[in-house]
Amino acid sequence: MLAPICSWAQPAMHADYRIVDRIPGADGGWDFASVDPAAGRLYVARSNGIMAVDLSDRKVTAALAPAHRAHAVLPMPGTREIVETDGETGLTRFIDGATGAVTAEVATGAKPDAAFLDPATGLVAVMNAGDGTIALVDPVRHALAGKIQVGGGLEFGVADGKGLGYVNIEDRNAIAVVDLKARRVLKSIALPGCEGPTGLALVANGTRLISACANKVAMIVDVAAAKVAGSFAIGSDPDAVLVDPARGLAFIPCGGTGTLEVVDIGDARHIRHAGTIQTQVGAKTGAIDPRNGRIYLPAATLAAPEAGAKRGKPVPGSFVVLVLAPVRS
């Protein structure tokens, strides 16, 4: 039985977090972000480059490296490299995080989008939204190691650390379960009541998935049972689920309503909506610094959408990274 859906507007503010800073950046679009705690840097995938922010002094490098509609930007642990997926060129690129030099380019598929590092295989899994494949890239050899044919509009994916991956399929309202070692699809988990799943996270020691859906709902999936175990209402236009395991919380940035939904993940049996933080319209992705729990949300003032467009274009001079800090660490 599904848990009852609760109103996303219940508390207008979550008392434990505040917006403490706004870091301006160059004009242009953006997608995913990540924090490299070892380097003390925030990376944001931008439409024409990789934005880097030194978190110790707020120094912004507007274009550490050029890009062509960048989507994912992942620091590689133990190295200076970051991995960027280049949506227009079909390339996954390796970039020196200190100098911005492109060290390698790998052709991975049509419209590479989200990506994650699989600890079990050591490979980077790249979701090719244009052809429904997952490209597996060896970050040591900078080479394509194989592909998994999934089909559909692939969105965000996560690894369980044991060789399995979970990927939202946006146009099928389902999660694909893939064996990254055997390089095959094992099964599909249906998401009844979810339309257009995008953001995805694995929580509660790998026992639950949280999937953010375009129809203002988040689904809680029991991994072992491979079925939806609950749901709750959220804001509109979510595109990520951010996890802070140290504080037992997850966050869903919703760009359409300008809200950050707070989720209590401390008890796998009772994952629940725990509050709403007012942020800014357009803030739909982000990253968490595991060192202090600070949340970084790229955003910009958006113009009215053109005919047929999902959202409006960023207004020149309005791009900013919102910084939210927990009141109690």
Rank of each mutant, 00 (worst) to 15 (best):
W30I: 00
G29A: 08
G29T: 06
G235Y: 07
G258F: 05
R69T: 13
V223G: 01
V321H: 03
M76F: 15
E195C: 01
V263D: 02
G206C: 03
G122Q: 12
L64A: 11
G282Q: 05
I169W: 05
A33M: 09
R247P: 06
G293W: 02
Y296G: 03
G146W: 03
S188V: 08
I234Y: 05
V217R: 04
G266V: 04
L200P: 02
R184G: 09
I252T: 06
D222N: 15
E170D: 12
E170C: 01
V321L: 06
P75I: 10
S7Q: 11
D118K: 05
Y17G: 02
K187H: 02
L302C: 01
I265E: 00
K59C: 04
A39G: 14
P37G: 09
G275E: 12
A176P: 02
G25V: 08
V281D: 06
E105N: 13
L242K: 07
G230Q: 09
F32L: 14
Q149Y: 02
S236I: 04
P305Y: 09
S34Q: 14
C213T: 10
V185H: 00
V124W: 00
D264H: 09
S236Q: 12
L191S: 00
L42T: 03
P119S: 08
A3Q: 15
P24H: 07
D16Q: 13
V102W: 00
P112Q: 11
E105P: 03
I210F: 05
K147L: 11
A307I: 15
R93L: 12
A174E: 14
K181Q: 14
E155D: 15
Q10W: 09
A325V: 03
G28S: 08
A33D: 06
V53R: 03
R22Y: 01
S188R: 09
N205C: 03
P197D: 02
G317C: 07
G248H: 11
S47A: 13
I271W: 00
R18N: 06
T285H: 14
L164M: 14
A268L: 02
H71S: 11
V243S: 13
S236K: 08
A233M: 08
N215Q: 04
A274T: 10
C6F: 02
D118A: 11
G308N: 10
M13L: 12
I134H: 05
G282T: 04
T301M: 11
V102A: 13
V323P: 00
G308E: 09
V262E: 10
A174S: 15
H14W: 14
G235L: 04
P326K: 08
A224I: 00
G78Q: 10
V262K: 08
R69A: 12
G196H: 04
G78E: 09
R328V: 13
G153V: 00
Y17K: 01
L42E: 02
G157R: 04
R208L: 03
A250L: 12
N48R: 14
V323Y: 02
Q10Y: 08
I175T: 13
G312A: 07
I295Q: 01
G235M: 01
I210W: 02
R272E: 12
N173T: 00
A129T: 14
A201M: 07
A65H: 07
I277H: 00
A52V: 03
A135N: 00
P253Q: 11
P77F: 10
T61P: 02
Q280S: 13
Q10P: 06
A145L: 07
M51V: 10
P316Q: 15
E306L: 13
E105A: 15
F232N: 01
